[in-house]
């Protein structure tokens, strides 16, 4: 029971990270039908921005009273900066190709992914860099299991961001514009929606959430490196597909499920950690083959 609970908490923590990244994939796909390959690397960049901000503010040595506002500032600034990066990428690389054959923006996205990874590689080198964990330590003992307080914080931060996002999309004017653009771009334009601005906002939010995911990853694993985005991005994309690509709630659920699957395969099977990626990518292929709409997705017509 204790082991089960440990794996579950671990899975939910990983799942929170995957879900935050998966949201960006699913939002962008929902609105312009592009698999934003660079999104995994945007996640890594966000983690590095967070690390730099922590260093600038000197938060590792900050007194506890300043720690909480400090961490909030780090999250907000890193998410905004990363959001602007996402907007810039969309403006420079994807917008000119919006009406090009499908292959063109997809290949460009692979290129952007390599450019981001290349820049991080040049600036930060090939090695793992240690990341401070600013979340409170200690365990919460429940009798049948003891849960890390840091893990609880991670899951709560992620859930908070997801609920905020969902409210934003469902309740605000911009959120409604995003939904309308995803449904029918031309009709939305005729209704007076500024398409370019709406798509830019989508990239801003998606990349911002990825930054939150990157910082949380740093806190959870206390390490970061330039190539993190490829594997984690592909897993997060699996989560988005699993939940139903284009569906925000689906991506969140998919993220948690994939996180739990990874840690259960890794924990319960002999040498399972070597196989957990194989299991996840097999799930990706299976879902795409047998149920491309995922858990909650709607059928997307071939255009």
């Amino acid at each position: 029971m204790r082991f089960f609970a440990d794996q579950l908490i671990l899975g939910l923590t990983d799942g929170a990270i995957f879900a935050l990244v998966a949201l960006g994939y699913t939002m962008v796909y929902g609105i312009i039908e592009l698999i934003n390959f660079a999104h995994g690397d945007i996640f890594t960049v966000g983690g590095f921005i967070g690390l730099t901000l922590i260093g600038i503010l000197g938060l590792q040595h900050a007194p506890p009273a300043l720690l909480i506002p400090g961490v909030i500032v780090v999250f907000l600034v890193a998410m905004s900066l990363n959001g602007l990066l996402g907007v810039a990428i969309e403006r420079v690389a994807y917008r000119p190709l919006r009406n090009a054959p499908r292959l063109a923006p997809l290949i460009t996205a692979v290129g952007i992914s390599f450019i981001l990874e290349g820049i991080l590689f040049l600036l930060k080198g090939p090695n793992q860099i240690s990341y401070p964990n600013l979340l409170p330590g200690g365990n919460l003992n429940l009798g049948f299991a003891s849960i890390g307080i840091g893990n609880i914080f991670i899951i709560l931060i992620a859930l908070g961001l997801m609920i905020a996002l969902n409210q934003f999309i469902q309740r605000t004017r911009i959120g409604r514009a995003m939904r309308a653009t995803a449904q029918d771009r031309d009709a939305a334009r005729l209704m007076g929606i500024n398409i370019n601005r709406t798509i830019a906002i989508t990239f801003f939010i998606g990349s911002g959430l990825a930054a939150a995911g990157g910082i949380i990853y740093g806190f959870a694993y206390q390490t970061i490196d330039f190539s993190l985005g490829f594997r984690n991005g592909l897993i997060a994309f699996t989560a988005a597909v699993f939940g139903g690509i284009g569906n925000v709630v689906g991506a969140a659920i998919g993220g948690f499920i994939i996180g739990i699957i990874i840690d259960f395969v890794g924990g319960y099977f002999q040498g399972g950690q070597q196989w957990s990626d194989v299991v996840v990518f097999s799930i990706l292929i299976m879902v795409l083959v047998f149920r491309p709409t995922g858990l909650l997705g709607m059928r997307v017509p071939e255009k």
Binding site: A93, I107, T108, V110, G111, I112, S113, F114, I115, L116, E117, G118, I119, F121, L122
Partner: peptide, 9 residues
Amino acid sequence: FLIFGIILA
């Protein structure tokens, strides 16, 4: 990596 990315994009 950077060179490949720049070529592709």
